[in-house]
Amino acid sequence: MNLQAVLVVAAALFAIGVYGALSQQSLVMLIMGLEMMINAGILAAVGFWSLAAGGNPQGEMLVIMFMTVMAVEMALGFSLITNVYRIRRADITEKLRRLRE
């Protein structure tokens, strides 16, 4: 277990997140992709915190901020989806594009 290994795992999680965020038609699944990327971010941050930054508490603070961002993103994302669904009765990105027109 060293920093390289942690970062490779984080990269794998991030790549899965990228795939999800780009490929999913459904807005909710898209949010899952974003979550997965933040997951990778958390892992990488703790990896640095633990193995490269000597346990500086600001590293932990950063992770907590990541979690906050995740919660905020989910809450607002889902609120928007609810509203879009109310108006459009759909949760699919293509239909959202039509909404914009």
Partner: peptide
């Protein structure tokens, strides 16, 4: 209860602090 569920997401963060 979806409104409550979404507010929970935000309020739950307070526990981390």
């Amino acid at each position: 209860y979806y409104t409550m569920a979404l507010v929970f997401l935000a309020f739950d963060m307070e526990m981390v602090f």
